[in-house]
Design a protein around this nucleic acid. Structure first.
Lengths: 189, 189
DNA sequence: CATGAATTTCAGAAATTACTGAAAACTGCG
DNA sequence: CGCAGTTTTCAGTAATTTCTGAAATTCATG
């Protein structure tokens, strides 16, 4: 019924796919599944996207590798059906976790490995250490945030500018009620 | 001097480049600049990477498009020299801002456009609205975080598990000293 | 354990992207 | 202006990635 919407979004997601490190096929398949209330089978996706059956199969495989779709079986139907999670925040968590795994973790490993294999005090060695430390700070923060249940996480994000006020330059959590101005805390520390 | 380090890191970054939506050339060039204390000129990069002069030129152009390198002039030398910021956190901010611009913003625009052009109450329409709202929540949070000066931001990130405790399920900031357990706050609300 | 529907694999074709060398276009300087 | 050094452009080639159809495999079911 809202065919235009689905089609437009599917094409857009396909285009974006290339910027996201997945390809057009995968992007389009995901978009269609994402907008479908009922799970879809591979043939449905062939019909909607116009890709070959084998291409759809590979795309679905890749999406499963990303943990972005789940397989469902339908009573008395031998085909596999695919669906995305209802919960949008679950999707985003998965996406971030998978991108981290692919884009950050290998570099972190490499940095650790390089640090172990050298005893240099050169600029480049120091720079690599600094990079590793920064990545560790960020990933630890990410892991901390990711531990928070969704309701609270959303509340935290919506707390907006109150967040920045909570932390002084030295990292202490500023007691509630003393977050009015930057100076107040400076004077107190 | 620490040639091995530079070489290994350069090759690794080149490989990773493809996962990051930049290509091998760009990744390697960036890696070398990142590890170099002094700015380098294009010919230096040709020597180190082994790429053709024109390829290096294009790679540098792309890095400039990402705001990841700056041009420096050296007294009495007509060549352009290139450098990355000393400040690691500045680099990461740039990287995130640029990825957001390329990977998020176009989709946000498209979602807004699609919402304006339809009056449907279908599942897919609702799903798109929910997606837009989620992206807006996240980008607004990002913008808030990005407004915080680096020292504080790092302190905040290192505050670790204290952060999650600060926010109740309804989004209120919990007074300091009452963050001990999940139940305490539940009882108080 | 045979059947046939459904899925996956895979080799090659098609499309896209990366890379190069040569030529053109800058740029500061005598 | 004209020259030499430097950078950029661009058309063609190389390399990689995506996509397909056909064949092989899997698997629930009789």
């Amino acid at each position: 019924m809202q065919d235009h919407l689905i089609r437009e979004f599917m094409l857009h997601f396909g285009e974006m796919g290339s910027r996201w490190g997945i390809n057009r096929t995968v992007g389009q398949i995901y978009a269609v599944l994402f907008l479908s209330e009922a799970p879809l089978c591979a043939d449905d996706l062939v019909t909607v996207t116009g890709f070959s059956r084998s291409n759809v199969s590979m795309g679905l495989k890749e999406l499963q590798g990303w943990n972005l779709v789940s397989i469902r079986r339908i009573e008395g139907d031998r085909r596999d059906y695919f669906a995305t999670p209802e919960d949008m925040w679950k999707i985003v968590r998965t996406l971030i976790a998978e991108r981290k795994k692919r884009e950050i973790d290998p570099t972190l490993s490499k940095l650790r490995e390089l640090e172990l294999s050298t005893r240099s005090e050169s600029y480049s060695a120091r720079r690599l250490t600094e990079l590793r430390e920064m990545i560790e700070t960020m990933t630890e923060f990410y892991e901390e945030m990711n531990r928070i249940e969704t309701k609270r996480l959303v509340a935290l994000m919506k707390a907006g500018n109150r967040i920045g006020r909570l932390v002084g330059k030295t990292g202490q959590i500023i007691p509630f009620g003393r977050q009015r101005s930057d100076e107040a805390e400076e004077a107190g520390g």
